[in-house]
Amino acid sequence: MKQAATGALVGLALGDALGFPTEFNDVPAILAKCGPWREMALPSPAIVTDDTQMTLALGRGIRTAMDRGVLGPPRLARPVREEFVDWYHSPENNRAPGNTCLVACRLLDSDRPWQQASQLGSKGCGANMRVAPVGLVPGLSDEQRAGAAQLQSALTHGHPTALAASDLTAHAVRLLAQGAEPTGLVGLLRSYAYENRLRYHERWLGDLWTHAHDASPEDFIARGWDECLAVLERLTAALRTPSPETDPCLATGDGWIAEEALATALLCFLLFPEEPLTALRRAACTKGDSDSIACLAGAFAGAHLGAAAWPAEWAERIEYRTELLALGALWDA
Rank of each mutant, 00 (worst) to 15 (best):
S153W: 11
L108A: 06
R145W: 06
L325G: 01
V173G: 03
A17D: 09
P97M: 07
A263W: 03
P21I: 02
P73E: 14
E202T: 12
G124R: 10
L18K: 03
P276R: 06
R190N: 02
A29K: 13
S216N: 03
P43T: 15
A96C: 05
A333W: 08
D26F: 05
A222V: 03
S110A: 13
W225Y: 15
R68K: 14
L325H: 00
C268K: 09
P45A: 11
D254W: 08
P248H: 07
L277K: 00
A170W: 05
L140C: 00
T236V: 01
P276N: 11
C295H: 09
G147F: 07
L151E: 00
A127K: 10
E323A: 10
D111S: 11
C249H: 00
H211F: 15
V137Q: 02
W310Y: 04
L267N: 10
Q178L: 15
S216E: 03
A164I: 06
S292Y: 07
A215E: 13
L277S: 02
L56A: 08
Q116C: 07
L324P: 11
A265P: 06
M129Q: 08
A303V: 06
H171F: 13
E313S: 10
Q115T: 15
D291P: 09
E39L: 08
A329F: 02
I318K: 07
A5T: 07
T183F: 00
L235N: 03
A333G: 15
S166L: 13
V27D: 03
D51K: 12
R321Y: 09
G15M: 05
L120N: 00
G288N: 10
R68Y: 04
E82K: 12
P248N: 09
P182D: 09
G187T: 13
A172V: 03
R223G: 07
H89W: 15
E227M: 12
L9P: 04
A215N: 04
A212P: 00
W37R: 10
